[in-house]
């Protein structure tokens, strides 16, 4: 069954253009100049019910604009979309009863109140009866490990704690689909992991479909089965995450710090050294060509490790690579 079907969806914004300076400001007052920016260009894709779909791309790629059209917040400039059988911008309120949304940069919890008060308010907004709402809050507080946080004013929660409460709030009304726009933005590794675990659990236990936008490749790897990469409002890649990983997410960035100075001629075959300092080294390698365990063995053998960080390349880099190599 199809949860989302998008055909030739477009969104164009009109933006005012003005050169620098007071004179240009005065001219713009009487003769404003506008230009059109195509945020989303004839986008078409499908998402099945219960699917975990990643929708990633760099800043300004059109991810949030697409999500906002799929929730009915924005009216498109052209094209069609059906979400759970509803046309979002025509049946926004009906659709809202069946979907949950989280905008990572736009909190929905009341800042000065404990999260429990917003959750109870959401119960009224989604027209749940009090007993049902409390039972659901009980379940979500266990699933998201927020039981001890519910009675603390939101302003006193950490970003990670608050975001767990935000995602829990979006699931209060048992939606069939949640649209998460950058839910992990600004979170540390542990907080990201807890959110991802809880989302995965809700997908497995309740069959909630998840459309996740992120510019963090880690979210994608941890959560999604399929990925759509957008850039400049267009789909540049659409495939299974496993295929993407095999073909394009093979590069790893490693930063290491040692307790003592490292030899100035530090080198390792199959590894690109990005920076070599007295006590540390930053390198990149392709895990398809150089096995991870070989790199790790070499690094740990080079001295007493104080700190090590392994990360994926930024999505921008993956997209650049896809452009360079072709979608394959």
């Amino acid at each position: 069954m199809t949860a989302i079907e998008v055909r030739q969806l477009q969104k164009t914004f009109q933006t005012k253009r003005k050169a620098a300076g007071l004179g240009a400001s005065a001219r713009a007052l009487f003769k404003p100049e506008y230009s059109e920016v195509e945020a989303v260009k004839k986008l078409s894709f499908q998402m099945d019910a219960g699917e975990l779909l990643g929708f990633i791309g760099p800043n300004g790629a059109g991810k949030s604009t697409t999500i906002k059209m799929l929730t009915g917040i924005l009216h498109p400039s052209g094209g069609e979309a059906s979400v759970l059988g509803f046309t979002p911008w025509k049946e926004r309120r009906k659709l809202a009863f069946h979907i949950g949304t989280v905008f990572g940069q736009r909190p929905q919890l009341w800042y000065h109140l404990p999260a429990i008060d917003t959750l109870l308010l959401f119960g009224k907004i989604y027209e749940l009866d009090d007993r049902e709402a409390k039972k659901r809050i009980e379940f979500l507080s266990e699933a998201f490990e927020i039981r001890d946080l519910l009675e603390t004013p939101v302003r006193k929660l950490s970003l990670g704690q608050r975001m767990r409460c935000e995602v829990a709030a979006s699931l209060l009304h048992r939606p069939k689909l949640i649209l998460l726009d950058e839910p992990s933005i600004g979170l540390d590794v542990v907080a990201k992991q807890r959110i991802r675990d809880a989302i995965r659990r809700m997908n497995q236990e309740e069959g909630v479909g998840v459309l996740l936008t992120s510019h963090d490749a880690g979210d994608l790897e941890a959560l999604c089965k399929r990925v759509i990469i957008v850039n400049h409002g267009q789909i540049v890649y659409e495939d299974k995450v496993s295929t993407l990983k095999r073909k394009h997410l093979t590069s790893k960035l490693v930063e290491v710090r040692y307790a003592q100075e490292i030899p100035s001629n530090f080198h390792l075959k199959g590894v690109e050294l990005l920076k070599v300092g007295r006590y540390g080294v930053k390198l990149r390698f392709d895990s398809n060509q150089t096995p991870v365990d070989r790199v790790m063995a070499h690094l740990s053998g080079a001295g007493d490790l104080v700190d090590i960080t392994i990360s994926d390349p930024p999505v921008e880099e993956v997209i650049a690579k896809i452009y360079k190599d072709g979608p394959a």
């Binding site: 917040i73 309120r93 009906k94 905008f103 736009r106």
Partner: peptide, 12 residues
């Protein structure tokens, strides 16, 4: 852009 919040919920 703060209407987003109200538009994403099922009330007027």
């Amino acid at each position: 852009g703060r209407l987003d919040y109200y538009l994403s919920l099922p009330k007027p």
